[in-house]
């Protein structure tokens, strides 16, 4: 039964939706944690330190997250490959002008996200949180410091803005898509969810993007937390 479900068109899609939903929740959590950056290192560093203190727990969370992530991608790749094959001969004249851009770009925003994620993990997860890159004004500010220093580079700011807007785009289709795929439909609420999905996508992108901009600005005016 499970095998049949995974092999079926709807089953695959629903697993993509469920893993997508888990990733959305992770993103929300990540975003809330990120917003603590605005309150300074004391508030922000609380979380990463807490997580690191769990030791093996961290490994479990990380591998769980990675599994969900790769399942999401793997199943999507399988679906997209089937979709490409399903057309057979391509249209010469098809008019897709009424196709939503977010939807159309799903596989591409997904790929950009994957790349972005690799850079992001390299930037912040794999670095020593109390190492050289965390030192601001001669003092290590932990992960906060890493973030602060990373966004001194305008190139990286641009890269992150691109990354989080891809994420926003991806979510603006993804959220309502999850609802449809898992089979919830309502004449009144479905259109509202579609609007919310779009709104949420934009909100997530803007809030995430505010961080590189904020630190870019901080780097110019100088950090207020450095004595």
């Amino acid at each position: 039964m499970i095998k049949q479900y995974i092999q079926s068109q709807i089953g695959k899609k629903q697993l993509v939706a469920i893993t997508g939903l888990a990733l959305i929740l992770f993103v929300m959590f990540h975003l809330s944690a990120n917003l603590l950056l605005f309150l300074g290192p004391d508030y922000f560093n609380f979380f990463p330190e807490l997580i690191h203190s769990t030791g093996i727990g961290l490994r479990v969370i990380e591998s769980g997250l990675a599994a969900v992530f790769f399942l999401h991608i793997g199943l999507t790749v399988a679906l997209v490959r089937q979709n490409r094959k399903a057309r057979g001969q391509q249209y010469k004249s098809v008019d897709y002008s009424n196709r939503s851009i977010a939807t159309r770009l799903m596989p591409y925003t997904g790929m950009i996200l994957l790349l972005f994620l690799a850079i992001h993990i390299n930037d912040f997860v794999l670095q020593d949180h109390s190492g050289v890159k965390s030192i601001v004004g001669g003092e290590s500010l932990g992960l906060y410091g890493l973030v602060y220093n990373a966004f001194a580079n305008p190139f990286r700011v641009g890269l992150y803005v691109l990354g989080v807007f891809s994420l926003g785009f991806h979510l603006s289709h993804g959220i309502q898509s999850v609802v449809q795929t898992l089979g919830y439909s309502h004449p009144k609420y479905t259109p509202i969810i579609k609007h919310m999905s779009r709104g949420l996508g934009v909100l997530v992108a803007v809030l995430f993007a505010s961080i590189p901009f904020y630190f870019s600005y901080m780097n110019i005016v100088g950090c207020c937390y450095v004595s």
Partner: peptide
């Protein structure tokens, strides 16, 4: 046939 990608076309 291909899969649904919820585009509603």
């Amino acid at each position: 046939f291909g899969n649904c990608s919820n585009e509603y076309l």
